[in-house]
Computed example of a mutant assay.
Amino acid sequence: MGVSGSQKSTTVRADRRRAARRRKAALQLALVRARLAALQAVSPRRAARLALDLWCTPPDGAGRRRDDRTTPGMLTTVTTDTGARVVVETWAAAGAGGEERTGRGGGPTASGSPAEVGVVYLTHGWGGWRGQLGAFVEPLRAAGYRVVAFDAPSHGDSGPGRLGPRRSTMPELADALAAVVREHGDATAVVAHSLGTATTVLAVRDGLPVERLVLVAAIADVLGELDGFADLLRLSRPTRELLRGLLSDVAGRPLAELDVRETLRTHPVPPALVVHDRADKEVPYPVGAALAAAWPEGELLTTEGLGHHRLLRDPEVVRAVVGYVTPVRPDEPVEHDLARRGV
């Protein structure tokens, strides 16, 4: 079957837009490198402060603002220990009647009921928002779960973080999850994406109770990501060392504690399903495979051709995630290598 002229025209326009975005990104990177090079020559500390600001600025983009929710939930807000206002969206379990109860902060939250078997939290990644994980909402509700999603500080509809608008940190994202769980009830499971996986593990390290984790396109080596960031910006050794010190000060803890693998070595963690695609360009597949192998009671779900974002809305992935969260039934096995299906 041939391709119509209109389809060809649409493809050409999309290719041109992508090429224009790449040129713009390359120019912006060149300008940032030039500015940092000039600063490093006179004041590595000032260069490190600029690098810190860049590191703490979440990216934007259409993919990160995609909305896969099919029905609106009930909106409330939660205030974190550091004073950030976090927007929370809640969906009652199917058949729960959408009743309300008063949360610890005085606001309404979806009520538990005989139809509710637990609470599942959805945690987005760096630069993302709650709507990205919307494809999980209805299947989880149908399975009997109340579903709670939220926007981290300086993300989505939430207020700014401690560093101001469009700035945030990993500990701040972890604290937001902990605050939401305190308000909305113990977590049966947390389904997290990208950097949200690392911040969820950080929250677990800090004492968040959760029965199961689902880590989609997981990031494990945060310090390695920082090294890659420093390489990209061509930071000198003095600037890198100052940047690490500034980051530790902002985080209020040693940077080693942000590393998922260090938490696995030193803290108990719940069972986890790691979902990773072989074509993920943001976090290579071996990262997820190694994490699943190192995780006590860890399982790996492999997909093919879904990349870093599309697996959040793939029906087979959603089915497998809901199956993992739900108590296993002998007549409903979960396929853990979707790549074999040509997904």
Rank of each mutant, 00 (worst) to 15 (best):
M1H: 14
G2K: 05
S6M: 15
R13N: 11
R22Q: 14
K24Y: 11
A26N: 08
A26C: 08
Q28R: 14
V32K: 00
L36Q: 09
A37E: 07
A38N: 07
R45G: 06
R49P: 03
C56H: 05
P59F: 06
G61H: 00
T70M: 06
T71E: 15
M74N: 10
T80N: 03
D81A: 13
R85W: 06
V88L: 00
W91Q: 04
E99I: 10
E99S: 13
T102W: 04
G103R: 11
G118C: 05
T123H: 13
G125V: 03
G127W: 00
Q132N: 13
F136T: 03
R141C: 10
A142W: 00
V147D: 03
P153C: 01
D157Q: 14
G159E: 03
P165K: 11
R166Y: 03
T169Q: 11
T169A: 15
D175Y: 07
A176P: 10
G185I: 04
V190E: 01
T197Q: 11
A198T: 06
D206T: 02
D206F: 06
L215W: 01
A220S: 15
E225G: 12
F229E: 00
L232R: 13
P238V: 11
E241D: 15
L242K: 04
R244P: 05
D249K: 12
V250R: 12
R265W: 08
R278E: 14
L301I: 09
L301Y: 05
T302G: 09
E304C: 01
L311Y: 08
V317S: 01
A320R: 01
V322H: 07
V325R: 00
D331Q: 12
E332S: 14
P333K: 14
P333Y: 13
E335K: 10
E335W: 05
H336T: 15
D337M: 04
